[in-house]
């Protein structure tokens, strides 16, 4: 009997407001277990992120000397298609004529090309809607209502600056990091 009373007096002792000393142990123990669970979950979740070999993004060098005005090529960078397009004078003029305020993702052609190389439009060939490869880079492919690229998956139209003009895609075709090593060689990445 005495032991029982002793136990009760230890666990049920209240320090005002009905807080028991054992409550502290409960909170401390479950908090510690919770921290442990998070510590274990972190590596379990993190292992899914792109691994080191995937992140080691090799850059590529492309010879663009054979791309005539009005032509485009498709190449591959980080396992994703890249379009390199040599715009015609008319295409540049068409892109510059558009009032920026009317665009869904306002950007001028000059913001998307390098100074002095405004004719070279280099973009990812990944539709910003759900990731299909738009048409319009290879000869004979439809270029859409704005003469740039057309994504057949859900009907997104891009203009001659690769900007989204119509359809469900939210953004312009992404411009990757690149630099001209010479007049005919461009390094992407």
């Amino acid at each position: 009997m005495t032991t029982v009373e002793q136990v009760e007096s230890m666990t049920e002792a209240t320090e005002g407001e009905g807080v028991r000393r054992r409550d502290f142990i409960h909170i401390a123990a479950t908090s510690w277990a919770g921290i442990g669970a998070v510590a274990v979950a972190l590596p379990l979740v993190n292992q899914m992120s792109p691994s080191a070999d995937v992140l080691a993004l090799a850059s590529i060098e492309v010879d663009i000397s054979s791309i005539d005005e009005g032509q485009a090529i498709k190449t591959s960078w980080r396992k994703q298609p890249v379009f390199i397009r040599n715009l015609t004078k008319a295409e540049i003029a068409a892109a510059n004529k558009v009032a920026l305020g009317t665009l869904r993702d306002p950007q001028a052609l000059a913001d998307r090309t390098k100074t002095g190389k405004e004719n070279w439009l280099i973009t990812l060939g990944v539709c910003t809607h759900l990731g299909c490869v738009p048409l319009g880079a290879a000869a004979g492919e439809v270029k859409g209502e704005f003469g740039g690229y057309f994504c057949p998956c859900h009907g997104s139209h891009y203009d001659t600056a690769g900007r989204i003009r119509k359809g469900p895609a939210p953004l312009n075709l992404a411009v990757p990091e690149y630099e001209f090593l010479s007049d005919t060689v461009v390094k992407i990445g």
Partner: peptide, 16 residues
């Protein structure tokens, strides 16, 4: 990218 383990579907995605 976390789901795919890359920038586009590739080995990591197929495996998981």
């Amino acid at each position: 990218q976390w789901l795919l383990g890359g920038f586009a579907p590739d080995q990591a995605a197929l495996n998981r």
